[in-house]
């Protein structure tokens, strides 16, 4: 669960400097988030897919990841098509045969073209950003991202917090899994009752207590070894000469999409 399936690989994107990739990912995400028309949004989705293709990411894992991300988008599809005025596409109700208390007025819904277009736009943008993010940020491991964050000029405390959290996450998760296994072999089956809640609360509490103790120990060990607020890296992560150019091209593509989106209504295009 806590592995990084996309971080291993030998594509050009995997080898690039994580700093350049992070900046490019941020620029792409911001530009794509600002899009307002479906044409440029579809192009952004194509760009994201092309980046994933270039990174030669494992397709089954990628699709599973996308499915998980689209749960929220699916939730919006339940509401958005019915929420905007426009030309009706699909009418649900009113139900003349049924009594009023069973089918009140608000139950009759109308899906409009504007609503469907809005839902489609959100879907395109969301998936475009996620694909580009996986291809750019996901192709570095999190340790590399943490160091890149510090070298991009963000507060070093924040970068350290990210690195420490990532390191300890596995330990804490193991702790939790061990407690859960122990509960399971003792015949614990969750249900909606106080016993279940108490069991989960005790598990969470135990994880917190052990984590807290571990934090004290690790903190002492680090002070003992002379930790004074920075990691010394044995090897500077080596990028490739063309990394900045690569990032610049991606940023330019994203900016071009945004420009097309803004200029489209002015030029009178559909």
């Amino acid at each position: 669960m806590l592995d990084e399936p996309f971080s291993r690989g030998a594509s050009r994107l995997h080898l690039a400097d994580p700093r350049c990739k992070l900046v490019a990912a941020l620029a792409f995400a911001v530009c794509a988030a600002l899009l307002r028309s479906p044409g440029p949004a579809a192009l952004a989705l194509l760009t994201g897919a092309a980046l994933c293709l270039w990174a030669r990411l494992p397709l089954p894992r990628l699709l599973r990841r996308l499915a998980a991300v689209n749960v929220f988008v699916a939730f919006l599809w339940l509401f958005l098509p019915f929420s905007l005025p426009g030309a009706p596409l699909l009418r649900i109700g009113p139900f003349p045969g049924l009594p009023d208390w069973l089918a009140p007025n608000w139950l009759s819904l109308t899906a409009t073209d504007a609503g469907v277009a809005q839902a489609l736009l959100v879907t395109l943008k969301s998936n475009a950003i996620v694909l580009a993010f996986i291809a750019l940020a996901g192709t570095s491991d999190i340790t590399a991202v943490g160091h890149a964050v510090a070298r991009l000029g963000l507060p070093d405390k924040l970068a350290l917090l990210l690195l420490f959290t990532w390191r300890q996450l596995h330990v804490v998760a193991q702790e939790y899994h061990r407690l859960r296994t122990a509960a399971k072999v003792r015949g614990f089956t969750p249900g909606t009752d106080l016993h279940t809640y108490r069991t989960y609360a005790n598990m969470a509490g135990m994880v917190l207590v052990r984590s807290f103790d571990r934090a004290e120990r690790v903190g002492q060990a680090m002070r003992l070894r002379g930790f004074a607020g920075r990691f010394h890296m044995l090897a500077e992560p080596a990028g490739r000469p063309g990394d900045r150019l690569l990032a610049a091209v991606i940023i330019l593509c994203a900016a071009a999409l945004l420009a097309a989106d803004i200029l489209q209504p002015l030029a009178g295009l559909p």
Partner: peptide
């Protein structure tokens, strides 16, 4: 370190 572990 304490904040990091509570965050995890």
């Amino acid at each position: 370190m304490t904040v990091a572990i509570l965050s995890s």
